[in-house]
Write a protein that binds this DNA or RNA. Sequence first.
DNA 1: CTCTGACTTATGGTATATCATGGGATTTTA
DNA 2: TAAAATCCCATGATATACCATAAGTCAGAG
Lengths: 157, 157
Amino acid sequence: MRKSFLFLDTIINKVDAKGRVSLPSDYRAILKDLSTEIVCYRSLSAPCIEGCTEELLDKLATDIESSMDFFSQEQDDLTNLIFGDAKRFPFDSTGRIVLSEKLLKHAQITDAAVFVGKGRKFQIWNPQNWEKEEARIRAEVLKKRPQLSVKPEGGAE
Amino acid sequence: MRKSFLFLDTIINKVDAKGRVSLPSDYRAILKDLSTEIVCYRSLSAPCIEGCTEELLDKLATDIESSMDFFSQEQDDLTNLIFGDAKRFPFDSTGRIVLSEKLLKHAQITDAAVFVGKGRKFQIWNPQNWEKEEARIRAEVLKKRPQLSVKPEGGAE
DNA sequence: CTCTGACTTATGGTATATCATGGGATTTTA
DNA sequence: TAAAATCCCATGATATACCATAAGTCAGAG
């Protein structure tokens, strides 16, 4: 059994002219000995970048390998899209990765990026877009589960 | 357990007059000590070249061997086609392979080739054809999973 | 409780290594 | 021997690794 690892928290970091960003130290700490790189791809569901370990994608590849026959390509459009889009991003000794133009453009990221933990995955957002997205998610959740709106004390604003 | 290897990303490289193409360095890195060659064959499902490690084809052979499904004429025919068509392509010290006329013609590749990661396999496309194919796949995916197209602002109807 | 110092992290800048690619030399094959 | 395939070297562009500084965090001492 492996030790659990989770991407948590929300961190904002600067992006320089070359597209370099520091991967949050917590994220790096999680990977520690396992790896010095992360895999990123354009999210299919939102204007953001998604990141995960190569291990996770490898698991996906193994699942496909065993569940489908070698020649079939019908049902794996989605996964094929991911593999073609995903790229390894190794981080250097200072913990930075350089994001590709393609990814930055898709997420509309220019000079700052928000890292949002999603458990086994994480997302990277343009700060303004994330602000809106978070508000949307909160509203959505509260609509479905109004009891959650009962707060111990003062609210968000 | 072996270390994971995945063909990822989408890379475009030039094809010179001799039919030489650089195999993306990431792809070479995956094979590292294992091998200095790659196996390629004409895709049965698309106008492109498919590539993989010899190891994968070996696995395919083993699976067929031990399968109770050896009555399947269709699968038999397909595997014959693959093994008959596949060829080893060694790459030199600079990481280039020379694709055969047969493969180039099938994929309509002349002066540029797009390498598309597919996990355990990869594909090589004519750039224009790939552009169209990618658009097709993206449309297909969104059609099958409409909820993914929901954006923070633009609503789903 | 406050100040101070050690340590970690983020970030800007720069040097270095790697890769794709063109050209040419050498070997193989017919 | 001619043609074709393979190998090797050179080069410019790009990406990567490294160094230095700054800022922020935490712990312990006074």
